[in-house]
Design a protein around this nucleic acid. Structure first.
Lengths: 196, 196, 196, 196
DNA sequence: TACTAAACGAGACGGTACGTCATGTCTTCGT
DNA sequence: ACGAAGACATGACGTACCGTCTCGTTTAGTA
């Protein structure tokens, strides 16, 4: 960025408190699993905000939801660096599964992924969000590869997708648990495969 | 699907033509990627059917979509049995990815998965559909295990979920291709992982 | 297709009870002078009807209001025929002023005339409504002319507009009463003028 | 109005140019018949003024409109004094009808009268405006009465209301022209009526 | 020359109402 | 008695306009 510090910007500034309230409320509603279908009116009312204030800054409901989600999810997943692929992977996946296994977070992820399929404005943010998560995991793998723990020809992106694929299909379909045991097993499989 | 043509019946029977028309139209609309949201009115109109005829036989839009999808997807995926895990897996995944990589099918899968998140009536059929696909792949793996190609302690379900996880996350998020090369790579990874 | 001569109208018929409820509620709300601004949502809620049911049959709020008004106003103004212009005019204007002087009716007329200025869909119905009222009064005058009570060259339409002009300007601006005394005075003036 | 001379008043003074621009723009927008609804945002933008500058000096949109209208309408209607009721009335009504018959003025009057029905802040100014116009015409009639051209018992206000009533009902409803011929006819009728 | 107060253009804000769209239910009539 | 047509209640959507509330800037009087 250059030094365009002198933004003129006449007029009232965006109310940051309102923005936060909207996102907070969105996350909260997204998380309350059973409750009805997360409405813009509901968000606006709960945030003490006019609907237009939402539509002034986001192009659609999906976009709000995505931004709300992206701001939260993944925030508390530390990236371990123990020097061992197996241990790093296990720690990372355990933290990830623990977070995603939380019913509120899972509900939010489900809702949001569904929204991203129907709302074009939510597609791109969702891609960005997932890309950022994938990037983190890929970084972890790259470090291991640099240490020689992974064959240099291995397809790191495929490993990443195997990890997040298991996570997402279980979130969306709910046919299996997302617990620490599952994370450990998955970490073991992937580490073994990578070492392959 | 099956030949229940010759069954005698007293009283007026369900109009099988209407049922088929509804499912056909649903699949078709589901597949026309860009076009607006798949509506019940749209389906009814395109099928030349009254809305009530749909709601008489299915509890909700999602249920129709799911049945339409389940009747098609997976129908043309043969289950290979070459005697080699690696070859079986590769053949199966290549066929699967080829089918799911088709833009129309992918669009239908996307729509339907989204619908399953919001429509309770679609959850169960979606679970059944995915379970049936998983069962097929698991059967393939079990045969390999019986042949001794897989360590007896391996978590077959985890392998299955990795396969379908990669498929679904790429369908839903569209960040990577779903081609034969990807299928082959994935088959190699999973076979290696299974072999231990 | 040929021969669609008499389409017998398949499908559910319009709910006449709903239609009446909408118009009744509209008149009632229109008449409750002080209360806020007669909303479509309010009408729908009070009539126990969905908004779409209103918009299915009327193009806009103004059109509903106009039809509601036209169905009521003027309904209870008898057209006298005493054989005397002066007496007929007086009776007619007294009844008209008495009706229009009623605060509820006046409020409704005011609201509706205002709506007709802003809503293109309300213009035409308003013209029709006023035309029908003018026609009644003009008929009364024509009978008097046929009896020789009015000079054959008199501009009956002008007389009619003088009468309804006084009515409306007072309704809209409220600078003078609309009582029977005023009706009597106006009847006298107009009868004198007509007599030439 | 007067005598607040000793108010210290520090700070910037009211921008008279802005005030004029607002009123000018209001009149112009009010007059552009077909164009959408006259909005405060539109006025502000067209006048190159902030909305607050409008609301600082007027209590509501209607008030602006009214002041804009009152400042223009009636300004160019001379009050004739020929010594003959009939001639005075005809001259006055011809000038009035000519002005009000102008499509721009008519549009402005229509809009404004509608606004006065819904905006309490516009009611009083509208009453004042109409009262001032009525007063002028009444003055004309009073002079004629003083000359003995009108029966002393005649209800001058009723005559005035007939004149403006015809004008307004035709402006608002548009069922008849507002031309010079109509003005002449009306003048004749009212003069005859007044003469008794 | 500073300082203070008010008015200014810009524009974001909380609201209210609008008119549209989709869902799932409920008539009506033709076959 | 089934089924296509389509009206129904419900409720969310996204837009428009209202009148209010900041922003930072300009303009006048006061110190």
């Amino acid at each position: 960025m250059t030094g365009d510090t002198h933004r003129p910007h006449t007029g009232r500034r965006r109310n940051e408190a309102a923005r936060q309230a909207i996102l907070d409320v969105a996350v909260e509603l997204l998380g309350s699993a059973g409750d009805g279908p997360v409405t813009i009116d509901t968000i606006a009312a709960a945030a003490g905000v006019g609907k237009q204030t939402i539509y002034r800054w986001w192009p659609s409901k999906g976009a709000v939801l995505l931004e709300a989600l992206a701001g939260r999810a993944g925030a508390d997943i530390p990236v371990p660096d123990t020097g061992s692929l197996r241990a790093d992977l296990e720690a990372f996946l355990r933290a990830t599964f623990r977070a995603a296994g939380n019913p509120h977070t899972a509900s939010a992820l489900r809702h949001t992924m569904a929204e991203a399929q129907r709302d074009p404005h939510a597609r791109e943010p969702m891609r960005d969000f997932l890309a950022s998560r994938r990037r983190v995991l890929r970084g972890l793998l790259e470090r291991a590869r640099d240490r020689g723990e992974i064959a240099s020809g291995a397809d790191l992106d495929l490993i990443v997708d195997q990890a997040y694929g298991v996570l997402w299909i279980r979130i969306l379909n709910g046919h299996a648990r997302l617990g620490e045991a599952e994370a450990t097993a998955l970490a073991g499989s992937l580490a073994g495969q990578a070492r392959g």
